[in-house]
Amino acid sequence: MDQALPKTVSLALTPYGSSPAVTVTRIRTFIDEYYDRLWRVLRRYGVPEANVEDAAQEVLLVLARRLEDVSPGSEWAFAYSTARRVAADRRRMDRARPRTEGSEPLASIADPRQSEAAARADDCRELDALLDDLPDEQREVVVLVELVGMTMGEVAQLLGVPPGTVASRLRRGRAHLEQLVRSNSERMEQSRHE
């Protein structure tokens, strides 16, 4: 791992109080293993795609600053709770901001070559709207298992709850989502007839 580190890393003490080599190695290991997961969590907690990289950087900074307090092996748990807070902060700021309808440029939707990507983006928007309607405890289990790809055991450990609780939250979360999909579909059908 050390060999892969950038050569410019200095050997001076880091501002975070631990040796730079340890800090850099832990952060680098964390990014290698968990960056995708972190990115997906931020996305599914409502951070727009264009801002996810920035939000992830914010989480990494907090992790780096608090690394001394984070026991080895607990980095993901720490980052996950930080990511939820960062996402919530960003959503709050976003809500406070005035919106302009149709403010997105044509971008991808105008390009048929990107229609698959556009359809995927539509799906993601729809899913995010559905997730917004889930109770928080169900949402986080659905996100972590179905979308981030963690096992129920890992989620149980992360959240500090028994595996059975995770399973039941997941089951109820899925049922809730299916109910929401059904309601939306019926509503669309009704408006079409009107």
Binding site: R40, E49, R120, C124
Partner: peptide
Amino acid sequence: KSASTEAP
């Protein structure tokens, strides 16, 4: 599935 394919 669509959301799972989203990645950095």
